[in-house]
């Protein structure tokens, strides 16, 4: 596992150095990550960056399992967040998810695979184009990205593929918290002779088909993704559609209804 990793940052840091003169040095990274230069160039495209406490990444201090590390991102006190990108600096594939909070709170939670100890960071972009960055350092032992999924070994994986479980928890602040689990192997393509096979996007829509939240997902999202959104509540009753597609073109489609108040 380590080999692929260590080579990548070295090569890339050379690229960054070569570009320093024209691009201007990136602002100093409070996490001192060796991949920060690359993140700044390639993912944030050298935009204006502020390290901002209002962008909170919550994750365990130490990952108990590298295959399912829970991460949540909440932006508090920033208006007009147009997108949030989740990045695990020292994974072979850094970009993990891109969230578009159309009519949702600037919050989402999911689980990620970790190749080794790394900063997990969220970059929230506001309407003015500025990136607001928060992050957390998570200790981990390693190997999460180059191991085949559990489902790869199961003969009947196809019969449950893209099955959806979901539940809604109404909150007092006019928010419905929706948590969903999609059955999917989420193979990264980095394990020998197993091509990449992963969910590419997931949408929450209301009954009228209006998209409330959109999440683009990449290979490092954990097998059987468990994803949480907070959307403006549909009302006392009603529900939401959950839809998406994987990179093979297999569709995800489900409807989740609010439980009647008891």
């Amino acid at each position: 596992m380590g080999r692929l990793f260590r080579i990548a940052p070295m090569v890339l840091s050379v690229l960054v150095l070569a570009n320093v003169a024209s691009a201007g040095a990136p602002p100093k990274d409070p996490f001192n990550s060796p991949m920060w230069g690359w993140v700044y160039e390639e993912i944030l495209e050298q935009g204006q960056v502020i390290f901002d406490d209002r962008v909170k990444v919550d994750a365990p201090d130490s990952a108990e399992g590298n295959f399912q590390v829970p991460v949540s991102v909440r932006v508090d006190g920033l208006d007009d967040v147009t997108e949030i990108i989740l990045i695990v600096d020292l994974n072979p594939i850094l970009k993990t998810a891109k969230f578009t909070p159309n009519k949702a709170r600037p919050y989402f939670a999911l689980r990620v695979k970790m190749g080794q100890a790394s900063v997990i960071r969220a970059a929230a972009r506001t309407k003015d184009g500025v990136w607001h960055l928060g992050g957390k350092y998570v200790d981990a032992s390693g190997g999460g990205c180059t191991v085949p999924s559990v489902q790869m070994a199961a003969a009947d994986w196809e019969s449950n593929l893209n099955n959806v479980q979901a539940q809604i928890w109404p909150r007092e602040n006019g928010v419905d918290r929706i948590r969903t689990r999609i059955i999917h192997p989420m193979d990264t393509g980095l394990s020998g002779n197993i091509p990449a096979f992963f969910m590419e996007h997931l949408s929450i829509k209301n009954a009228e088909g209006v998209e409330l939240a959109h999440l683009q997902t990449f290979e490092p999202v954990s097998e059987d993704p468990v994803i949480t959104f907070e959307v403006d509540a549909v009302g006392e009753t009603g529900g939401y559609s959950i839809s998406g597609m994987d990179n093979n073109g297999n569709e995800i489609s489900a409807w989740v209804e609010k439980a009647p108040k008891s």
Binding site: A155, D156, W157, E158, S159, P185, P195, A196, F197, N248
Partner: peptide, 9 residues
């Protein structure tokens, strides 16, 4: 390249 993930069956 596109690789269809095929069921075992």
């Amino acid at each position: 390249q596109y690789d269809a993930r095929l069921p075992d069956g």
